[in-house]
């Protein structure tokens, strides 16, 4: 239809111009003559719509109307949906963020990759039975390195530990307390047993050969030094690091607690760590599922 007008104009020009093109023009005239009736009936409504929008063979305007109503219906529902989904997501993310923050703190203390503190060791308890890192699994443990001839710090710390253990036990927290001697030359299982009888009955005493104890102390980054060339029966002191090592139920290191923890902050710290603990298997699962990205 759009073509019609310029061609009609062309025709009028050409009719005046030459006879040679008369044959050409006649066709245009015929075109022009035949079309006006059809054009007059159809061109008016068609003009409003761009050509491309009318599907070939498909004329039903009803269908288009249906689509329009669909669109209107979706707009208010979409708003509702957006509020519902958006609100839900917002709640999910904020709560998840908090939870993950606590876990990340624990993870940071645990260290990435291979644990820096702790590892396999091979010692014997006061009954002479072997005790290894496997015995740390399944329960939280607190380790203390010392020696029976310790003048003042070890007994103080062990007394403190006894108090903590009672306090934690009252609140239902289970903790396996372990005393490891740094002085295997003098501290036989019997000596350790006798020594620990003065302290909390739950404390497990461990000893071993010098090499075994040295290896264990190395795993836990415990410094200890025995004077060189000690003769049997000689009186000497062992210099050693004084920390409590808190181990989780997977037998992995969580925290080292120095002498600055008193009877209030000590048990509090232990409880905090036990409460925030997520078993290793679950942590691994989290990592592979990708949730840990948050």
């Amino acid at each position: 239809m759009l073509r019609l007008f310029p061609k009609r104009r062309l025709l009028t020009q050409r009719a005046v111009c030459s006879i040679q093109r008369a044959s050409f023009s006649t066709t245009f005239i015929r075109w022009n003559e035949s079309k006006p009736e059809a054009a007059s009936s159809q061109s008016a409504p068609r003009k409003k719509r761009p050509l491309s929008r009318i599907p070939i063979g498909g004329t039903s305007t009803q269908q288009q109307k249906l689509k329009e109503t669909n669109l209107e219906f979706a707009s208010w529902k979409a708003a509702l949906l957006m509020i519902a989904v958006g609100g839900g997501l917002w709640y999910f993310f904020t709560s998840e963020k908090k939870r993950i923050q606590v876990q990340q703190d624990a993870e940071a203390n645990r260290g990435y990759g291979k644990p820096l503190v702790g590892g396999p060791f091979n010692l014997v308890d006061t009954e002479g039975k072997p005790f290894t890192e496997q015995n740390l699994k399944g329960k939280f443990s607190i380790l203390y390195f010392g020696f029976t001839h310790c003048p003042d710090i070890c007994p103080d710390e062990l007394d403190k530990l006894g108090l903590w253990l009672d306090m934690l036990k009252k609140e239902g927290y289970k903790l396996q307390p372990i005393f490891i001697t740094c002085d295997p030359a003098r501290d036989s299982p019997e000596v350790v047993k006798e020594y620990l009888s003065d302290f909390h009955p739950d404390i497990i005493g461990l000893t071993g050969t010098y090499e075994q104890v040295k290896d264990c102390c190395k795993q836990y980054r415990v410094y200890f030094s025995t004077p060189p060339n000690v003769k049997p029966g000689q009186d000497y002191l062992v210099d050693h690091s004084i920390f409590f090592y808190l181990m989780d139920s997977d037998g992995e290191f969580i925290d080292a607690m120095g002498r600055n923890y008193d009877n209030e902050t000590g048990p509090e710290r232990i409880k905090e760590q036990i409460d925030a603990f997520v078993p290793k298997a679950e942590r691994e699962k989290k990592k592979t599922s990708g949730w840990s990205l948050w």
Binding site: H149, P155, R186, V191, E194, G233, Q234, D235
Partner: peptide, 18 residues
């Protein structure tokens, strides 16, 4: 036995010493 101590002093002995 102060020079040849193989068994550690127990709680009461520690207290006496302290």
């Amino acid at each position: 036995s102060s020079d040849t101590a193989t068994v550690a002093p127990n709680r009461s002995k520690r207290q006496v010493c302290w």
